[in-house]
């Protein structure tokens, strides 16, 4: 998963009408989530990606 992919998914999510069903993938399962849950999961993924990147940067130094 890349930062760009997550940002695009968040953007797409914002443009979706409220009544649409959403599913988030956990392993092989697709779990139905609310829009806020989806947003929070994506933001969480984005933040752990950035943390990972910062850690790698720290090691490189």
């Amino acid at each position: 998963m890349t930062k760009e992919e997550i940002t695009q998914a968040l953007k797409f999510l914002e443009s979706l009408p409220e009544d649409r069903k959403l599913y988030y993938r956990f392993g092989r399962l697709l779990v139905e989530v609310k829009k806020e849950e989806a947003e929070s999961l994506l933001k969480e993924a984005l933040s752990s990606l950035e943390k990972e990147k910062n850690n790698q940067g720290g090691h490189a130094e």
Binding site: A9, R20, K21
Partner: peptide, 13 residues
């Protein structure tokens, strides 16, 4: 249709 929109998220469209 449920479509994969990336980053593990699928949406009903």
């Amino acid at each position: 249709v449920v479509l994969d929109i990336g980053a593990g998220l699928s949406a009903e469209l």
